[in-house]
Design a protein around this nucleic acid. Structure first.
Lengths: 102, 102
DNA sequence: CTTACACTTCGATACTTCGAAAACTATCAC
DNA sequence: GTGATAGTTTTCGAAGTATCGAAGTGTAAG
């Protein structure tokens, strides 16, 4: 496995290595499932993403950026709000790497 | 998702968040595939695990411990050597968490 | 234009992690 | 026993990370 690929993977894993950030991501994953059922984009701005985490706004902003930089989520401004969604490609990359049976 | 589960997952991801440690794990995963084909336990002591990483022995020892503590690998002494193998349960936990379709 | 809202950037502080050197332990061969 | 091999523990400095408060930016509503 090429070094660049390992580094890229490690960066994704690092983005998920913080419990609060992982919680954000899992909440977003959960939202994604709901969206699939409802067939529409969900408005998941940051406060809702928190789900009772009680982090400050700057901290959440930072975490969202980390997840986005790692290629795990997409962000997109919509008026005042920042819409986030799981990046399926990033998710697939992780799952592929963790597959025992090539 | 319960807090304990998130913390446990985060710990696994953290174990894979360092490029060198991830490389160790991927090498081990590769060995596991070979073993399945050959139908026997491979002698994968630490120097072989490195695969050209050029890390010091203490560092490797530390990384192996981290992976083991996170529940991603099993270790087992065999004479002078430390035999390592991927923990399939840990792997499955990660893959389940990263599944979009419940 | 002014205000309010939602997020971002900056700067500080407390904490964690990586990798190494030195010293230690356990096992095997002789 | 001695010596060699394989890995561990301790400890350290350099670098990175998490979180916050204060100040800043962009957008919408009045």
């Amino acid at each position: 496995m090429p070094k660049d690929d390992v580094d890229r993977l490690a960066r994704m894993f690092k983005a998920l290595s913080n419990p609060n950030r992982l919680r954000l991501f899992m909440n977003l994953l959960e939202e994604s499932k709901l969206d699939l059922a409802k067939g529409r984009i969900h408005d998941c701005f940051l406060v809702k993403l928190l789900g009772g985490l009680e982090l400050g706004a700057p901290t959440v902003s930072h975490h969202v950026k980390e997840l986005a930089d790692a290629g795990l989520i997409h962000t997109q401004r919509e008026g005042k709000q920042l819409i986030c969604s799981v990046d399926p490609d990033g998710l697939a990359e992780l799952r592929t790497a963790l597959t025992l049976h090539t």
